[in-house]
Design a binder for these strands. Structure first.
Lengths: 348, 348
DNA sequence: TTGTATGCGTTATCAT
DNA sequence: ATGATAACGCATACAA
């Protein structure tokens, strides 16, 4: 490898001078400047980041740690926004993908504790409590969607309740009366009550229940379908809904877009039409939802808002601008009304 | 930060001993071992990776550099596979997202040149020649889809020609005779011929033309539609196809799945049904294609194959096992026959 | 305007 | 079985 020293020798100056030329910081004669740059170029010099980080105590890197980019492409949007926001603030951003298995999570935790990065935006969804506890408390970490009662870190939470509320209200407004909810049931509320900690599932269900109650609509137990929020699960649920006459719903609120897309697929398998036979609303606002048949109505997460809030807190922690109690803020969301909930197919 | 020295002091031993206990490498007495581990635990010690990398000369990190995870979710699949493959081989993997703009690309190049990682899997799609040239030739780099005549690095190329060939043959087999091709036209062939370098577009078109010729089918110029491979472009093309009677095609081969999904959307806007009025085949094999209405027929990229080949070459370069001429291998692909090309909707 | 010297945290070599 | 020490490449305080 080409080092500062190599460049210095070639340019006939000291390593210090090379450093000053390349990084700035003090005045050098034009003659020296040119010689050094020329030498660096000819040798193909590049700063050794390990050495700089060691000296500096920081890496200039912010890591985004998410489980499975392929689980929901909403993460893909986050990656893009984080990248831009980091660039704007002089950081580089890297993405680390974790699985649910504890090994990768442990790796991720080690990552931050070992100062491979200055700060970390860490998706807490499905993150076991003990892993969170193992995080070094005085590192710069912002969690995404940590719903614990007494969070140890700053966290940006998703608008779970709000999202379901908006979606359900919307279906009601569109004329639905018998609305199913896919992704949680009352047992989730019990778990939440028992542990004293909300969950994404319980909050989402609450939003739905609130909207139904507001409208004076009864909720039948079989309308609450507690499943994982994944494509293929949605397919099964859709088939079930269409085949099982008992359910007889005219609207479905899904906890995310994967579920909704799968559900529409399953309904189609069973011969049910969306929105004519049943209306469907998702949540997230994935890009592909704008191109499905029918186009997906959804409550879109405000990703730029989420990223700005998260990164804002993170950088305050890194810079030491803020050093107080863990903060909790909520990301925004907004309704995107499309054909799957009966909106007429406009030209765009 | 807690350093080796801190742990050593607390355990009453030397830093060297702590290092040996934690990393292994020589025998230590049980008594010392215990004391050191206890101290490290109590202090919450974590290895400083910058220091280790500096000493070691390697980071244990492999970076995957792709442009826009959201451009095509095929990248999301790649991320997952790269992650697993790296884990298996003792590396950590990080993802860096670039944009087409030269600034981010320059950053990415700097990344590898500055030894932030031991090796890099770099998506060459849309990568300007001069950026590639700026890459340090003796670093471990494997390019994804570098089609240049005389590549400077090992590269895994996508099965462009093969993919179109398979897709077109399949449509012909399904009974199509008037097949459009979306994503390139003959001007791409001219550009390729002029520069002496193939492009993804020219290769894909060649595959299509070959299949048509094999079957003795004429190709009308207006069937070749040279557009970007993106969702919203597909929508426009779909609307155009359905409205413009002149085209009158019974099958469409799309250069990727985004285009295909958009196209189906556009066709639906114009009242055309897939596959009854026109059959559609995409390319990539994105997950969501299995859940669209209709399910998307596509030529799926063999992502595990791609990743294995790429990472295999990369690690040989890192280890110095191979030091010869740049190699070029092609990733596999296979037809996934679904409803959008008239396959009956089976239960799964 | 430029050069010298020191230390960041780790690991490997030598010595004990 | 363990400790002292040097070196990795860079950035900076200090000296000239």
């Amino acid at each position: 490898m080409v080092t500062l020293k190599d460049v210095a020798e070639r340019a006939g100056v000291s390593p210090a001078t090379v450093s000053y030329v390349l990084r700035g910081g003090r005045h050098v004669s034009k003659w020296t400047d040119e010689r050094v740059r020329k030498a660096a170029n000819e040798l193909g010099y590049a700063t050794n980041m390990a050495a700089r980080s060691l000296k500096y105590g920081r890496t200039g890197v912010i890591e985004l740690v998410v489980r499975g980019l392929d689980v929901s492409s909403i993460y893909a949007k986050m990656v893009t926004h984080v990248k831009h926001a980091c660039s704007d603030r002089g950081y580089r951003s890297l993405v680390m993908q974790t699985e649910q298995d504890s090994r990768t999570l442990r790796d991720a935790v080690g990552e931050i504790n070992s100062q491979s990065c200055d700060g970390m935006l860490l998706d807490a969804f499905g993150l076991p409590k003990d892993v969170i506890d193992r995080l070094n408390g005085n590192r710069a970490i912002v969690l995404l969607d940590d719903l614990s009662k007494r969070p140890a870190f700053d966290t940006v939470v998703m608008p779970h309740r709000e999202s379901s509320l908006i979606a359900t209200r919307y279906l009601i407004e569109r004329g639905c009366r018998r609305i199913a909810f896919v992704g949680a049931d009352r047992s989730d509320l019990q778990v939440a009550a028992g542990s004293g900690e909300d969950s994404a599932r319980s909050l989402r269900l609450e939003g739905y229940l609130q909207a139904m109650e507001e409208a004076g609509l009864a909720v039948r137990p079989e309308w609450l379908i507690p499943v994982d929020w994944r494509y293929f699960v949605g397919v099964d649920v859709g088939r079930g809904l269409a085949c099982d006459g008992r359910l007889d719903v005219d609207g479905v609120v899904c906890c995310n877009d994967s579920l909704a897309i799968g559900l529409i697929r399953g309904l189609a398998d069973a011969g049910a039409r969306v929105p004519d036979d049943v209306m469907v609303v998702g949540s997230d606002g994935v890009t592909v939802g704008e191109f499905t048949v029918p186009r997906l109505s959804t409550v879109a997460l405000d990703v730029p808002d989420l990223v700005n809030k998260g990164l804002g807190m993170l950088i305050e922690r890194i810079d030491g601008t803020y050093d107080g109690e863990p903060r909790r803020v909520t990301a925004g969301c907004s309704l995107v009304a499309k054909e799957s909930a009966g909106e007429s197919a406009s030209a765009d």
